[in-house]
Write a protein that binds this DNA or RNA. Sequence first.
DNA 1: ATAAAAGTTAAAGTTAACTTTAAGTCAAGC
DNA 2: GCTTGACTTAAAGTTAACTTTAACTTTTAT
Lengths: 147, 147
Amino acid sequence: MSYSIKEIADMMGVTTATLRYYDKEGLLPNVKRVNGIRVFEDKDFKWLRVLNCLKNTNMPIKEIKRYVELSKEGDKTLQERYDLILKQEKRILEDIRQFNHYLKEIEFKKTYYREAIRAGSEEAVKDWPSSYPSLDLDKIPSSKKGK
Amino acid sequence: MSYSIKEIADMMGVTTATLRYYDKEGLLPNVKRVNGIRVFEDKDFKWLRVLNCLKNTNMPIKEIKRYVELSKEGDKTLQERYDLILKQEKRILEDIRQFNHYLKEIEFKKTYYREAIRAGSEEAVKDWPSSYPSLDLDKIPSSKKGK
DNA sequence: ATAAAAGTTAAAGTTAACTTTAAGTCAAGC
DNA sequence: GCTTGACTTAAAGTTAACTTTAACTTTTAT
């Protein structure tokens, strides 16, 4: 099967301009052309799914480009590509770890606001967060007097 | 306790320039000044920890600023602040969900490369990923002939 | 055969989140 | 009292990742 740039763009949820930008940056290796017009094939689509994975887990475009270049150089770069993938795995694991931590803080704030809304004021739940020492959060003075 | 901008910067792992930028953008409400010089207090430090949480979970600075402004307006904005926090919780949950998904793809690639390295070539593991249908990844032609 | 839709490029513009620079003010040690 | 180092501001510069524009070509539909 082969696809136009617009079809691929729709499948990936990006614009054609973005795909052309990726191509220019060397992120789309060996895309076929007919009369100068890009013709995407299944292998391109498969690669785009990997690209999407790397992009959405915050691998910088420069690093993705490096990965593409290594792939083009064949088997002698297998180890280096493996290392890049390992590095990316670490990034993702660390991000998940951090997000889970911050999620707890946010959930605490959720409870805090629910209580405050129930009570009608923040003042009423002022010294309530004491049960969660690291998080008696943002009691900003609210500029009660003086600006 | 009170702290200089440098002390706070070190505690937060950012530069003083970044803190001044945040202040200029209205992200640091009511920071005390002595002779024009910022003096951070414990309440500021506590807020900075929340700011850090929101920032590191990709809340845009504009939205954080909105949150700060709502906080200054007092109890009548409790519901709106709660809604912002809820929205942020959803963002985090969705990000964790996605990251876990992509983590699986990356782990698959890790295994793929380990096998290829063991075998000495990608060709040797060419039709191996069939066990993982959505992921028989990036077999880029490697420009074997013709560029 | 022609008009509209979809493709192309190079280059300039945008946005977010900082960072750097320049020019100056304030506090501490000698 | 003067130099050194930390503080200040406003404004310009940077970087990543696109997006938009302008001018042009190719494909598709009538």
